[in-house]
Design a protein around this nucleic acid. Structure first.
Lengths: 183, 183
DNA sequence: ATATAACTACTCAAGCTTGAGTAGTATGGA
DNA sequence: TCCATACTACTCAAGCTTGAGTAGTTATAT
């Protein structure tokens, strides 16, 4: 799963009704482009695809004062289910882009659920980091491609940094920071 | 650019002649799957595409003792140019997957060139990390989606970890570790 | 003897991504 | 006034990715 579907579904859900350009505009205002790349064409594709799958419904065409007509979308019941599925997956994900997208929408879940998911994601991330470290010491230092020991080091550092972030986020959530609509 | 083209081109170049399954087998033996995902179908697509573009040439069909016939590829002069282009791009890239793929093939360049490229990639990575940190302090702490401050923190930590790795790699290269065929 | 799993080698279709393009409206400056 | 730029809103085609499938061969165990 790429983060785009979650982002599109979540944004339409949050806005109530939205056309493609509005979704793009909002995501851009979130400065999503600094941490993941969401090109307009991908958003439009995701909207169409989600509509085709019945996760979104087209709520008519508006002709806006400025510019061409636009297709307005709303989320469906099936879309809501899909959204929460993606959201839970993202908050558990060791992929930094997915995790980021999930985090952005976390207020849709109760605090306790977010904490449970993030604790699992932390456990997973640390497990991967440790596995990579173990593989690293299993690898004799070999001065030839692909220099696996160093490559494993690059990735274990990266997962280590992500784990630190998750740990500090979990602590802040436990201290009662951030507000949740469903608490 | 995804890392797949570099990986395929580099592997065919390194092996001299290779069919799709051999490329996949070698990359798997590199445990490339621990740090990037290269699914067989992507490799076959890349081989065909590179052949179509004249970067690879098909050097006949072999019928192997075990299993079906296989198409053997060789790199062309244009492919060699492409390879070095990708390689230099990858060693300068702030994308961890590209950087990893470039690093795996670094022995194809002289040590001094690798050092120059990695110094540039370190500079770039640190610049991005610092930009993200600056943006973070520009963002008032706002308890609402998408929690930009925290998201920026996640990414700056990640780039920070990558920068540390690059710095230590550069040091090892300066101390004369790793051997280079073209020195 | 036999089935079942693993290996060899690739193909296909559906979906995803993206640079480029289209087309109209508004806006600001010379 | 007129030109260039930017904004609104989306489309298209080419290429990329991937789960699943195909089809034969060989080892493994029962």
């Amino acid at each position: 799963m790429s983060a785009v579907r979650l982002l599109v579904l979540g944004m339409v859900r949050m806005l109530g009704r939205a056309h493609g350009y509005a979704v793009h505009r909002e995501l851009t205002s979130w400065q999503i482009d600094t941490w993941t790349s969401v090109k307009p064409a991908s958003l439009y594709h995701a909207l169409k695809q989600l509509a085709k799958e019945g996760k979104l419904r087209t709520a008519g065409m508006e002709s806006s004062p400025e510019g061409p007509g636009r297709t307005v979308y709303e989320i469906t019941a099936a879309g809501d289910v899909e959204f929460f599925g993606y959201l839970e997956g993202a908050l558990r994900s060791i992929d930094i882009e997915e995790l980021g997208a999930g985090f952005a929408f976390m207020q849709a879940l109760p605090r306790a659920r977010v904490l449970a998911l993030l604790r699992e994601q932390l456990r997973q991330t640390e497990a991967v980091r440790d596995d990579l470290k173990t593989m690293m010491s299993d690898h004799p230092v070999r001065d030839k491609p692909p220099y696996s020991q160093d490559l494993l080091g690059l990735w274990s550092r990266s997962f280590g940094a992500n784990a630190e972030w998750s740990r500090s986020l979990i602590e802040r959530l436990e201290r009662g920071e951030y507000s949740f609509t469903r608490d």
